[in-house]
Design a protein around this nucleic acid. Structure first.
Lengths: 194, 194
DNA sequence: CGTGCAGTTGAGCAAATTCAACGCTTGTGG
DNA sequence: CCACAAGCGTTGAATTTGCTCAACTGCACG
């Protein structure tokens, strides 16, 4: 599929909320977050995107979230109109667009389930999600900060930090460094996942 | 579009989680909720569907939520395979399927934004959503119980009840009966909606 | 080195939950 | 027609959870 690979430095905006959605994007390397800022300054992270993930695909004409590179990243940028043209003639492309949206829906629904739970369950669920999306089943290198995780889970950085420490003390995980998580007891995490 | 209209009594299951998704559904009258039950008995409501809304449309082969009629309802039941056949030849049908999924995604994302907020903001946001989806802009008849609302917003019935009372005292709404809500001060609700 | 940023930890506080009691409405049976 | 039970909603008091404010640590970078 056509498109151009563009580099984005850490914390640089890829697109803004309400901007025309003329392009869609695929993470090649690095990581991306989408987010909204509320009137009072609170930020909600919409999703994290890792290499291979497509983001910025909209039905309407504008983006509903803003997006930024979490780390220095390379992103494949594809003109939406060219995809639309393809989809009009090629049924399997149309199918793929639907699949991407449906997968997105599944992920958001899974997160809904997280957000009704306690802090410990949210963090455990988040770690399991990150593990599942990474290649290595035993260790995850988190590309995002504690603030990003907090805004993703609807918690404060302090609560995220305390909960991580708590999970470490209960031997569910190990934290060789703050961004590196080793799963020590997956079933304990699964149990928390309700 | 073909299909059969079926009646469902209050609290009767329409389909269960993990059951084969051979049909999709459209609310004709009444109201429907989708939900999941967690291991410890907590329930999370996935969505409320009102007349005109389509639900139970899946990409995969199984339903990801269970669904029940909230009140006595009539539901148009459509065989999925017949829709799939149509979509294969007719591009605009395929487009419509995508649109339904995308709209669902938007709604869930909007709810994500709600779930990171305070109880008062969640309830205000819920009422605004219900008002927007109803015809009358000034009054809503809520088809669902306080327990349903609580499970939708990730709160307890007590907190929902107290918050409603509080909104009534602050003159944002009036409650002629527990299921009937009159909007008295929409801008106050919007302010809470952040 | 020192400065700044990210993360951790602690103490006190506010918000929502839990537990419990009570009121209102509805339906059922005597 | 009244009595009573059941379901739903509201209200109150005590408790718990996560938040706020604040101090402190470790680390990277100039």
């Amino acid at each position: 599929m056509m498109g151009v690979i563009m580099p984005f430095e850490r914390n640089v905006e890829i697109y803004g909320e309400d901007e025309p959605a003329d392009y869609l994007y695929k993470v090649v390397s690095g990581a991306v977050r989408t987010y909204k800022i509320l009137a009072d300054g609170r930020r909600q992270i919409g999703a994290f995107y890792l290499p291979g993930d497509v983001f910025g695909l909209e039905m309407g004409s504008a983006h509903t979230f803003s997006s930024e590179a979490i780390a220095d990243s390379k992103v494949l940028v594809i003109k939406r109109s060219s995809v639309a043209t393809l989809a009009a003639s090629n049924n399997s492309v149309a199918q793929q667009l639907w699949t991407i949206t449906a997968r997105e829906l599944r992920r958001v629904e899974a997160r809904l389930m997280l957000l009704i739970k306690t802090a410990e369950e949210r963090v455990a669920g988040f770690l399991l999600e990150m593990i599942k999306r990474s290649n290595d089943a035993g260790t995850v290198e988190l590309p995002m900060s504690r603030q990003d995780i907090a805004d993703y889970l609807g918690l404060t950085i302090e609560t995220v930090s305390r909960t991580m420490t708590q999970l470490e003390h209960s031997a569910a995980i190990a934290l060789p460094s703050s961004r590196r998580v080793v799963i020590r007891n997956r079933s304990a995490l699964n149990r928390l996942n309700g």
